[in-house]
Amino acid sequence: MIDEVDRRGFAVLGWLLGILLVTGLFSRALGLHWVQEVEWPTDLYALGRLERPLPVDVGIVGSSRSHYGLAPTAVDACLALTAGRATTTVSANRLAASLYASDIVARELFSGERKPRALVVEVAPESLNANHFELDYNVASSAGLGDVSECIGAATFGPPSLSGCARPLFRGVENIAFWLHRPLTEHRHITWMALYAGGGQYCFGTPACEARNADYDLRHQGRWKTRIDRVLPKVRTERFIDYTIEGGLPARHFVALLDRAKAEGVAVHVVNLPVSEVYQAEVPEAAYAEFLRWVPETTASHGGAFLDLNLPEWRVREQYIDPDHLNASGAGKLSARVCAELAGSVR
């Protein structure tokens, strides 16, 4: 029997749910759903709300690897030569992004009225793992209300967790709390990069950028050893555990990204970014073989172009700030290489 006290309890819960949902919708309407406890690597709020007089030429999505390895200013400097005009490249990356998060970022920032001429999509074997080690975080950081039902469907068979799927329903409160708590980690710096350099870690072409790059790499000199000690021992057991691609949320979203881009006439360049020799040695051969079988085939059958740059000539220690992230020198070279690939898509 429901009595008055029960009714009050339900009313309190109803109000709470309503407030959380309204806060979520409000937060999304303001673009604050991009504000996370960790804004690094990209200030997606600044990028997402910026109005540009001309469309973006090249969009880049991926994780910290594309954040380090692909410098929009270097891509633009190179593209301007082939296109005969100034171009705009924008890089929007998510921490620990699988293709699930990358697709959502691309869907929200680089489609519809904001579609670029070309889209560069970073892929890595771990970013397509159905059992991606940060899939819950991917959902928590990127999924929208419309993604909840799909997430719950996937959660009944495997990762992500059901509690992770509920996060987008109530994330508005935490987005707003983080927003009001600003400035968060390195906020001013990443906003500066978002506004004046198209995002990414490194920028080129001005003395200020070159000084920043040198300063950053100098201050991170210890990062190579630190991550060899802390990250490499966990690569096999954490990032490649139960490795499988097909049927997982990242693979499904990768295909969705390709199909959407094809329907919108956006040229998609799927790039397997390089990692150092020591990191590659930790990638299980069977997993890497499956990755190299599935990605080029799927990319081609959905209208994209695949570029494999994880080749021995790109794996030299001097180009890396840590085992799987390029430094400024490596980023300059890689950006020029990717630019050469984009030349046909950006006129």
């Binding site: 960790v38 690094w40 390195e186 201050r219 802390r230």
Partner: peptide, 17 residues
């Protein structure tokens, strides 16, 4: 562009781990 802020902080190093 205006001068770039410093590209480093202790918190960032922790995050980037």
């Amino acid at each position: 562009p205006p001068p770039a802020p410093k590209a480093i902080s202790g918190a960032t190093l922790t995050v980037q781990e």
